[in-house]
């Protein structure tokens, strides 16, 4: 019955949020049952719907893993938004430069390294500001988000504009991730690509690094006690920079999904919002890979379902659901965790 004990708070949180969303729908003047059916059909009722849900979940799993990673060192990276934008920008810059004749796995790997490095650069800068200059990471990462957003708008509208188009030059064939529609023709037009593999692999890889390597142990030690880290002679500066760089790299990888997998180019606003949504995913996932992936899929489904119900109620109604899920899980699960840790402390 242990698993039931563990599941109970989550079920409670789910039913609480369901009830709250139903009230919201009812207030908006629609039938909750009808809207629920529509949303479910839109997000999971067809192969296309499922593919869209997964495509929307892909960046969320990456940013969720990214935020959760930094949290293990006690760092709150709210800059996933800007790091994603850096990853998108790097992919848009590097993608067209890959020779068309390149085998795509190699081309994609090269661009992915660039995207990760771009995200890492931004993260590392915030880490350095924190450890060397004492600037709090929440402030700096938040500010850098705005900086990168303005930079991207200018680049996409000016220097990087592709002829008369409002987007950047198309990515070369040597760096395009094949769409899954070649395997399943019914997915035609879906945003889903093989980049979804990243969403599965990255949360596990991040957890493995933290739990099983010496570098990961030092990151967790910093999270547990900066004073102990200092007394042990480990560099707080270096560990902070490394943590934020790696966290930023995970967010940067989102560029691979959007530019190489989905659009084939970058444009203003591509990937906006997934960085902040990643914070919510990280909270729900609490550092566990499977929970992170599940939370990403849940939020992906809510976003996709929101589109499906747009004709009846505003799609924001389901966005509201995201917030309510977060609050109720926060209330119920946090209480459970506290109780458990109190018992441990005895």
């Amino acid at each position: 019955m242990k698993w039931l004990d563990r599941l109970a708070p989550w079920l409670l949180a789910a039913s609480l949020s369901l009830a709250a969303v139903d009230v919201a729908i009812w207030l908006a003047g629609a039938s909750p049952w009808h809207v629920a059916k529509l949303a479910a059909a839109g997000a999971a009722g067809s192969a296309y719907g499922i593919a869209q849900t997964l495509a929307k979940a892909t960046p969320l799993a990456l940013t969720g893993a990214s935020v959760a990673f930094a949290l293990r060192a006690g760092l709150f990276n709210v800059g996933a938004e800007g790091q994603v934008a850096m990853g998108v920008l790097a992919a848009a810059l590097l993608g067209p430069k890959i020779p068309a004749g390149f085998p795509w796995p190699i081309g994609v790997l090269l661009v992915a390294c660039g995207s990760a490095a771009a995200g890492a650069l931004l993260g590392a800068f915030a880490g350095w500001l924190k450890a060397a200059r004492g600037a709090h990471e929440v402030l700096t990462t938040l500010m850098l988000n705005g900086l990168v957003a303005v930079l991207a708008t200018w680049l996409y509208g000016g220097p990087l504009r592709f002829g008369a188009q409002v987007h950047t030059a198309p990515v070369s064939r040597g760096a395009r991730i094949p769409s899954i529609e070649h395997v399943l023709p019914s997915l035609r037009g879906s945003a889903l690509s093989y980049a979804v593999v990243l969403a599965v692999v990255v949360p596990f890889a991040a957890r493995w690094y933290l739990d099983r390597t010496r570098g990961g142990l030092r990151i967790r030690a910093l999270g547990a006690s900066p004073q102990a880290t200092r007394a042990l002679g480990h560099s707080v500066l270096r560990t902070t920079v490394r943590t934020m760089a790696l966290s930023g790299a995970l967010s940067g990888l989102v560029g691979v999904h959007y530019v190489l997998g989905f659009k084939g180019y970058a444009e203003d606003g591509l990937g906006a919002g997934v960085g902040f949504a990643g914070i919510a995913v990280a909270m729900l996932g609490a550092g566990r890979p499977i929970a992170t992936i599940m939370a990403a899929v849940l939020f992906g489904a809510l976003a996709q379902g929101g589109l499906a119900v747009n004709a009846v109620v505003p799609s924001d109604t389901l966005l509201l659901a995201q917030s309510i899920v977060l609050v109720s899980v926060g209330a119920v699960v946090a209480r459970e965790l506290r109780a458990r840790s109190r018992e441990c402390a005895q």
Binding site: L217, R220, A221, G223, A224, S225, Q227, A228, T229, R230, A231
Partner: peptide, 11 residues
């Protein structure tokens, strides 16, 4: 200061 400086209590 055992709890803070000596050890990482959460590990």
């Amino acid at each position: 200061d055992r709890e803070q400086t000596g050890l990482c209590a959460a590990l």
